[in-house]
Amino acid sequence: MPRKVSIQMIADQLGLSKYAVSRALSGKSGVSQATRERVLEFAKTLGYGLPSQKAPSPAPDAASSFVLICMNPSNRVDPFYWQRVLDGLISGCSERGWPHVIVSQPVSFPAVSHLSPQEIIAPHLDWNSCLGLIVMGAYPYAALQLMARTGKPLVLLDHNEPLLDFDSVNHANIEAGIIIAHHLLAAQKCRSLIFLGDDGRSASFAERRIGVRTAMERYGGPEAKLQEWELAYEEKEWLTATAERFVQLAPEQRPDAWICANDDIAMQWMQQLQRMGVAVPEQTRVTGIDNVEAAAHTSPRLTTVNLSKEALGSRAIEALWRRIERPGTPMERLHLSATLIPRDSA
């Protein structure tokens, strides 16, 4: 290719995914005929070296069908949690011989009445080949309604929508909150706790907070106290704002331990405490939830709750397979259990 034209360059110019361009150029199914012709014409214009006279695949069959994975854009840059969930999804697809297509859609879709749901969600795909949808993370009710109107089997991953009858696969977030709080109350003899979270970011954070409250009621006793600090996790300033709030506490108001809604918050907050001269775990304990890989390499190593992220993804593929094979069966809401990982920070 004299002008070094790449598939990614074509995808960027046409506003398509690299996957769609690759399928179109190679003559494989998974894209509409209109998209294929558009890609081939543009590639020819740029002088891209096309394969030698390879005819497009015929009408899609079971072997050429694909799973559409809809990923909330805010989760794309999270290597600790969502990338591992995605790895589980891809692995699950591979085990069943299912190709997959990933679209990172906005959390709300434009209300364009003259377009079909398929044209709004992914106009470049051949929806006749779509086996079903896996929806990763939180989407608004209206967006999920639109996805349901495609008529394809749909599984929610790490999200619930009680008003829509979808299968869902989630972590046992309430159980995780109970486990970590129980550990601090019973094993560490802590009597004052602060929960750091952001309920507006995800349902899982809110559920973990509920679990902590439940543990306080069950195991805390009359002397145990819980404070709940809400932070703006999506904003970079949350760490500074939390530190400013902390320094305003009188010594007797400072907690025995912190429960953070996820490991990322916990690791950043533990470092901030250390910068302020607060020793962990000697003066206060810090815990997280998720068990990301980096949690085992902090100093001190972070006590957390393990949530099987790859298993969450692969289990969602199993749920989709069940829905395809047994479409009339009752909907399922599955929760994968959580396990305490005690380390040095608490």
Rank of each mutant, 00 (worst) to 15 (best):
M1P: 14
P2F: 11
R3S: 14
I7G: 11
I10L: 13
G15P: 09
V21M: 08
V21L: 08
G27K: 00
G27D: 06
K28P: 02
G30S: 04
Q33K: 11
T35R: 03
T35K: 02
R36W: 05
R38Y: 03
V39D: 12
V39E: 07
E41S: 13
G49V: 07
P56M: 08
D61P: 14
F66P: 05
V77Q: 14
V77H: 13
D78Y: 07
G88A: 02
L89Y: 00
S91G: 00
W98P: 06
H100T: 02
V101S: 12
Q105W: 06
Q105I: 12
V107R: 12
P110H: 03
A111W: 06
P117C: 04
H124C: 04
H124W: 07
H124A: 10
L125S: 04
N128M: 06
P140F: 00
Y141V: 01
A143M: 00
V155F: 01
V155I: 09
D158V: 00
F166D: 09
I178L: 11
H183D: 14
A187C: 13
R191W: 01
F195Q: 08
F195K: 04
L196H: 01
D199A: 09
E207F: 07
I210A: 15
E217P: 11
Y219V: 14
A224K: 11
W229R: 12
L231W: 05
A232D: 15
Y233L: 14
W238S: 06
L239T: 05
L239N: 08
V247Q: 14
Q248E: 15
Q248W: 02
L249V: 10
L249F: 07
N262I: 01
D263V: 01
A266M: 06
R275C: 10
G277D: 11
A279V: 13
A279L: 14
Q283M: 14
D290S: 13
P300F: 03
S314W: 04
L320G: 08
R323L: 13
R323Y: 03
R326G: 00
P327T: 03
M331D: 12
T339I: 12
D344R: 01
